[in-house]
Design a protein around this nucleic acid. Sequence first.
DNA 1: AAACTGCGTTGACAGCTGTCAACCCTCCTC
DNA 2: GAGGAGGGTTGACAGCTGTCAACGCAGTTT
Lengths: 234, 234
Amino acid sequence: MPETQFAVASAAAPPLASLTRPARLPARSRVVGENFTLLFEGGRNRSLFRVLDGCIVLSQLLDDGRRQITDVLGPGRLFGFTIDGRNIATAETLSIARIEALGDAELLANNSAIAGELKTTLHRLQAHATLLGRKTASEKVASALVELSRIFSHSGRNGNPARLSFHLHLTRADLADWLGLTVETVSRCLNRFKREGLIDFSHPKTMRLLDPERLEAAAGFTRQRLAGSGRPPS
Amino acid sequence: MPETQFAVASAAAPPLASLTRPARLPARSRVVGENFTLLFEGGRNRSLFRVLDGCIVLSQLLDDGRRQITDVLGPGRLFGFTIDGRNIATAETLSIARIEALGDAELLANNSAIAGELKTTLHRLQAHATLLGRKTASEKVASALVELSRIFSHSGRNGNPARLSFHLHLTRADLADWLGLTVETVSRCLNRFKREGLIDFSHPKTMRLLDPERLEAAAGFTRQRLAGSGRPPS
DNA sequence: AAACTGCGTTGACAGCTGTCAACCCTCCTC
DNA sequence: GAGGAGGGTTGACAGCTGTCAACGCAGTTT
């Protein structure tokens, strides 16, 4: 495997973003290797987990093996939600990842925060459903690049400059499973964007956005905010 | 319009719910007409709502008008979740519907119930993402029929017999927007299922499942439960 | 009764994306 | 260094599904 951005770091000290709780890590924090399945859909689980570092994806399988990645999680996101004690989704690492289990006390204390996370996830999943159902292959790949840059760029102090370059944790196959495409289509789109000067990559996973604005346009915006307010029925 | 299950009620008074508060319903309950947009994505809203009767869909729009229905709600489901006071999704009625606003007191009292509803919705949305990204047109339509029969069949005392016949609240266009297809493809699939004896409908919205088992098979199951338990990382 | 509208169905055709295959490259093992 | 495995790219081709168009039908209006 090509060294991930954690390879060196995890050898020495905590890598990038030893954020959240750099020193004295809580006892429940844990480092997990690449391509490791943390939770199985339908499996029993009594904890919530927070991503401290790295990349984790949630997925679902059809009986014949078709896979759909439903969300890509970066630092800060929570996962491990259950219904009747059973995991809603399969969770696997795409990089060396650091995660933290949330204890019951924390759960209760952060109850509204957890509801907020649930709503955020709901919102993301809705947007992704729109992508899956109503966007073309090009729009899907462009959307993915914009989204992943937001999740995994080391948000530079100014915001913009650092956003241009980031590590694509997903393989072409992962991207395909996320976007409802095939590896070939993903590859073709990426290389077309490269030829057109929208993006650049030497290593397949080292991505740089050369023209974020055109890329966002190519992503086919979802309307972010409606100008008018809603019409509450009461 | 063909009579919905509410047609009688609406015949007495003006068809499209001018009725707001028919008989002695709880103060916050309300009847809304067909094809009425209750909430706009991005609009302000301070209440949660519960569907008491009828059919409500959540949707999202792209700038050019492409629409994606992200969930279909029947009796019992909650909607109106917000992030920063802004609606996550657009909500519109597909039938005359009865809804109920949940007050703050109820909200606090039902906090865990609400988290449960959020998780249920998350689960449904995930399954739908898998449908959108990884199922064929036939599988999508078959899945939709099975799903809608579960939501809208008047759950007979025995369960099964009543499940066979139900009112399809969605038009072909709604189905298309839900499944990420076109009306033509939806229509072709439905009529093929009809020719093959899987379903039957005289009126386009009066659906009957003649062979639920074959239909479920045609839907391409998502693996419901994993035998083994998950592997919690702590 | 005629015309109109919305919705649904059906056919012909096109094209986007999937399928199949070959090949390249890097990394790893032996 | 040879060989193998995994991931990525590219080309040829096919087919599923979208596009475009015509038509039917029911309900409503004029």
